[in-house]
Amino acid sequence: MKIKAIIAAVLLSTSVVQAEEINLEVPQNVTLEQGLEAWARMYEVVSHPRCSNCHVGESDRPMWSGPSYGKARPHGMNIRAGESRIGVETLECATCHVGSTSDQPHTPPGVDGDWRLAPVEAAWFGRGSLEICGQLRNPETNGGLSFQEIAGHLGHDVVLQFAWKPGGGREPAPYSLEEHASDVLMWGAAGMPCPTE
């Protein structure tokens, strides 16, 4: 019972901390070509280790991959995020990922919110552009969100914002939070096109 109460508290709390203002104005007269270019930039972001390491699908093991990790491997110390995706069944992510990110190398990053894995259906790690694009525009696998809501959640979900200020010598995701949100809106305005179309 206590586990369920904690998960409920986390779900209620994730959208209220340190919101960042981003422009959610949908651009007009976006061509298909521009939409595909926006998607290509979005794919660079979502497939970057700062994002994909926690988008591990049915696995409950976060990944360690990227330039500062060498060979891709599951998170050390046998970390399991469990069905809760926040590790509450065994070892909470927040045991180590808590508070602000230190700039010291090899220290656990943290945000002013709950460190957690992405939902199971948001499986990105190791997947290609077409597959992730299809997931992101499908309401059944994108959390039932419109493209405006996808852009909006980048503004208020601080664990995502970590990707652009990871600290500790880690490589940040490409572009910026604002540019990524702008690309989501441009891609959406073009009809959420995927590369084969």
Binding site: M77, E92, V98, G99, P108, G110
Partner: peptide, 24 residues
């Protein structure tokens, strides 16, 4: 750097690595 657990304490009952959280 929160890789050994020797510094573990509780904050409101939850385990926390005290070497990796600032007092602030």
């Amino acid at each position: 750097i929160a890789q050994c657990g020797a510094c573990t304490v509780h904050v409101d009952g939850s385990a926390v690595r005290s070497c990796s959280i600032t007092v602030g």
